[in-house]
């Protein structure tokens, strides 16, 4: 037994099988590609929100034919792997563009990052549309009636009241979606984009220290998602402070407290 542990110790800390210091020393190199990871995740999420909102509207307003299409889209997207969606987008879009008689010179110049953003946005929108639909339907009916009563049109009510209020309701699940998105970007090497994971694997390919690299990447992703979920939580609390009656937070809390003192 003792022999086993001493061999394990050697293996880890003498660096024969596993070099612990390599896990940390390569973090800065990996982080160089973090901006690309974030760029893909953020743009894809923004497109996903816009498209997801449109899909949600189709569902809420129950628009006849579009509703069926939306149902199919959500069901299909949720029922297929992201990896396959990425491949399909990467090979499919150029084919469609070719069929539309666009010059190959143009098609070949499309930066690969576009394919990954399109695929991830379409994938995420299937989930975010559901969250947004539920949130729109959860907005208090009285708020909408009040908006109508002061003369707001349907569009004005949507823009000024329904969207902001449903955003607060949907924020937790949209936030989870964003975290999922950051992790999903590790698959976009499929569309020939080098982001953080792919870059890391390329570094590791030089000296075959793949396991250390995967641990490095895992740590980096973990820290990023932790920071983001913390930020989202703070944002959510800030947005919701005007809902609570417990006197914590809120623009006028200081005033209220001063009044109690005086």
């Amino acid at each position: 037994m003792a022999e086993f542990f001493s061999r394990l110790y050697e293996a880890i800390f003498q660096g024969q099988i596993f070099k612990l210091e390599l896990v940390f020393s390569r973090i800065p190199e990996v982080l160089k590609y973090l901006p690309i990871t974030l760029e893909i995740a953020i743009t894809a999420t923004l497109f996903s929100l816009v498209f997801g909102f449109l899909v949600a509207l189709v569902k809420v307003k129950d628009i006849p034919v579009l509703r069926r299409i939306a149902q199919f889209y959500v069901s299909f997207t949720r029922g297929t792997p992201v990896m396959i969606q990425l491949y399909a987008t990467y090979f499919g879009i150029p084919m469609i563009l070719k069929a539309l008689d666009l010059p190959s010179a143009f098609i070949n110049k499309i930066p690969p990052i576009i394919f990954s953003v399109v695929a991830l946005a379409l994938n995420d929108a299937a989930y975010s549309s559901e969250a947004i639909r539920a949130a729109i339907q959860a907005v208090d009916k009285g708020q909408i009636e009040a908006a109508h009563s002061i003369g707001m049109t349907g569009w004005q009510t949507l823009r000024r009241i329904t969207i902001p209020e449903s955003l607060v309701i949907a924020l937790p699940s949209l936030g989870n979606g964003f975290i999922g998105m950051i992790k999903a970007t590790s698959l976009v090497f499929v569309t020939a984009v080098v982001e953080m994971s792919k870059h890391g694997q390329m570094i590791a390919g030089r000296d075959f220290r793949q396991f250390e690299m995967q641990v490095t990447l895992a740590i980096v992703y973990w820290v990023i998602t932790m920071v983001i979920s913390r930020l989202l939580f703070m944002w959510e609390r800030k947005l919701k402070c005007n809902e609570r009656d417990d006197g914590k937070g809120g623009k006028n809390d200081t005033v209220a407290r001063l009044e109690q003192v005086v």
Partner: peptide, 30 residues
Amino acid sequence: RRNTSMVFQNFNLFKYKTALENVTEGLITV
């Protein structure tokens, strides 16, 4: 809707707007 205005039993103030913003909302938007 522009020429009539309702005061509701449950107030229905816009919950993410201050008292002032509740009153200015119709003036500015409508």
